[in-house]
Computed example of a mutant assay.
Amino acid sequence: MSFLSSTRALGLFKGLSLGPVIQVRTATKKVAGSKTSMKDSAGRRLGAKAAENEPVKTGQILMRQRGTRFYPGENASIGKDHTIYATEPGYVRFYLDPFHPNRKFIGVALSPELRLPTPHFEPRVRRLGYVPIEDEAKASFEEQNLKRKDHLLRPTILKELQERAAKRQAIVEQYKEQLKTIVPELSDNELSIAAERLSNVKNHLKNGVTLPDAQATVTSIHLQDLKLQNKKGAISPEEYETSNSNYLSLIKKVDSSVSFDNKYQLTKFLTPEARQGKLDELEAQLQSLTEGKGKDSKKQLSKVLDMSTLITPAEKKLLHAKYVKPLLPLNHGLAKSVTKRWNYEKKRVEPLA
């Protein structure tokens, strides 16, 4: 085509109306393709692993869950990932507990006819799950088999138990000798029972229990043991009634004749009036010793309080604060420094100049 013909074609092309012009940008270099991971993890297989009334073994998983949607019931436990498993062989039960109405429980009944939950104030049904071992060698191995930690600690534990038993027996023998002088009409069998009872009462007293509560606790435990022996057939009903009545008459005789001092030694029983009279005599003695001055007087006061076996630790603190180190009045002199001390009379903390 010549120059003239191309110019005319260009003019014709400019006269045409082609609409809006769209700019298209093309890639100038190759781009690496991206790969997204569209995979998903496998399911965790959550949910119940045993149905209602299904027999299970010890350690068998009952439920896998996220969170505690179900709680472990009787003969079941829960792991750190909220997995509930059986702790006894038996039959699975899904149930509700009226004491926890907002919780659902999974438990294991020890026999097919049992239903859960067990009534709240009734004893739980227990089963060891053991079978007798007929082979003597295997039986001896099972009896001696211990974990390494228990095996290493066994000599120490046995030694401590023997020492405790020896100390307890020494206290019982000491109480027997003291009872012979305080209550001489007791027989040898009654002395043994009374000394054992007083040893148990002393243990409760050392734990901070009052004397009447300690005596009542030891009495109820002994009577309950007699009742269990009767139920097991170890003693006949006639022997149970005789032992029960003899024990009640014995403790009535002993408790009305024997008491404890503040060092847990046996003393003759004192009525509240007689004890108050002895306290008045002690306070009069302390009052006479306060007339002296100096360190010797305070040493004598402290010695008298330490030697007295009649007063309780609380009464000793009160008398010590009253006579040995009496509280000064709050308006005593000019205050250089202020401290806080316990006022035994008013039972409160007060500032002391």
Rank of each mutant, 00 (worst) to 15 (best):
E54G: 03
L226M: 14
A139F: 12
S2E: 13
P101R: 09
H100I: 08
R154C: 02
F94R: 13
R44M: 09
V31I: 09
S37D: 15
S243Y: 11
E122V: 13
K322D: 06
K252H: 10
R197F: 08
K295Q: 12
K268Q: 10
L327V: 00
V183C: 07
R164F: 03
V183N: 07
A321V: 00
I311W: 00
G294I: 10
K176I: 00
A27I: 02
T290P: 08
S257H: 07
N189R: 15
N246M: 00
E54S: 14
D306T: 10
G294E: 04
P117N: 10
K14S: 02
S302H: 08
Q162E: 15
P237T: 00
T312L: 01
R341K: 15
D81V: 03
E160C: 03
R348S: 11
H320F: 15
R127P: 00
I106Q: 05
K346F: 02
G33K: 14
N262S: 14
L250A: 01
N207F: 03
F94P: 10
L279G: 03
N200R: 07
D306V: 04
S259V: 04
Q174N: 13
R44Q: 07
R348M: 13
L152Y: 06
T26K: 11
S192H: 04
A165Y: 05
N207I: 01
P112K: 13
L62F: 06
E185I: 09
E163K: 10
N145D: 11
